[in-house]
Design a binder for these strands. Structure first.
Lengths: 195, 195
DNA sequence: GCGAGGAACCTAGCACCCCTAGGTACGCGG
DNA sequence: CCGCGTACCTAGGGGTGCTAGGTTCCTCGC
């Protein structure tokens, strides 16, 4: 009997593929063991728990995603950067729904062990927003709204929330137009009374 | 032994409470049976499957949510309506995280059996958007972006996605300001080239 | 008041899941 | 070629969803 040659990295990769194919919920120790032709218990030599496995998928997904976004945004600014950012974000989430879902997990800082990646990702968006002339605290507020809009859009789209016939691609493009306008006209504090 | 007096409605209500307390994932037939002091199998006299139970929670949550939003929006228009809508949306989601999570399920039309509620909810948002002078297809596009922003915001907030210290309440208020501005200046097709 | 029928709930059991404890066997460095 | 660590195993406990096939209780028409 040849050994399967398991290790944490291979397990994580397989779990990520599985998550994209059948959904993060269906990523199971048993399924993974089946895929490697191995007993469930063997998995636990390389990974502490199912939870840890999913966290690894989340970290993998997060890293891949910020990498893609960074590549897309590189050398662009303003509207171009926004569109590149958003398109890369959406594309990754749609191409890798399981990994993307994993990134949405609440993961404790000590589990992450990868604060650098996280910091890089927020720097990415802050850099982009600064190009719109935003500074703190508007930076944080606009960043939150932007993240919310992107995540919400992709999440709703992925879970079938957009039943209406109008093509999503078209709506997406228009929404990016709108977000660009929004960031260009972000209501600063001095501009008016706070609602 | 007194009968527990189960029925689908009571089960749904209990499942909804449970979902809000411990999360939708933890809503389990066994847990529900425990709560009623009854064996698992008894549940299946009233509900076909765990899936059906969760769908019922989703429908309940959806109905409650649109009702609250409708009450909040009633008699308002423009910015007031937007803020009332968004606040009611967010409040419901934060007060009832389990029910809210359930509403995010992909549910087939024949499972819903409640197209009226759904239609009412889209009419609610469309009515609000029309007050901003929007018409199809901008109505659909703006509606999608608005839903995405609200859902994304609430979802990120609920899953601990906003680690940054700046108070979420403040960010939220600013984001609503921004969304109002956005809807007021929605980039119509004629206004410029499509990116 | 009473039997029939249905509803409410049960026992028993399968399949699948996560995870632990304690082995066995393979292959590499000495 | 021999020890030893690592890769993988067997065995098993506990939780979960769900089904099949009872049994007991309540209600309702007579």
């Amino acid at each position: 009997m040849a050994r399967a040659g398991l290790n944490a990295a291979r397990l994580t990769a397989a779990a990520a593929e599985l998550a994209d194919e059948v959904g993060l919920e269906q990523v199971t120790v048993s399924a993974l063991a089946r895929r490697f032709g191995v007993k469930d218990a063997s998995i636990y030599s390389h990974v502490r728990s199912l939870r840890e496995l999913r966290v690894r998928v989340a970290l993998l997904g997060g890293a891949e995603m910020t990498e893609r976004i960074a590549a897309a945004v590189a050398g662009r600014a303003g509207r171009d950067a926004l569109v590149a950012f958003a398109d890369a974000y959406r594309r990754y989430a749609l191409d890798h729904p399981g990994r993307y879902a994993a990134t949405q997990m609440r993961v404790a800082p000590e589990e992450a062990a990868d604060t650098a990646g996280l910091r890089r990702s927020v720097e990415l968006t802050h850099g982009m927003l600064r190009a719109y002339g935003l500074a703190e605290p508007d930076l944080t507020d606009a960043g939150r709204l932007l993240r919310a809009a992107l995540h919400g859009y992709v999440h709703l789209e992925a879970t079938g929330g957009f039943a209406h016939p109008r093509a999503v691609e078209e709506s997406w493009a228009r929404s990016l137009d709108a977000l660009h306008v929004l960031l260009d006209n972000w209501p600063r504090r001095a501009d008016g009374p706070a609602r």
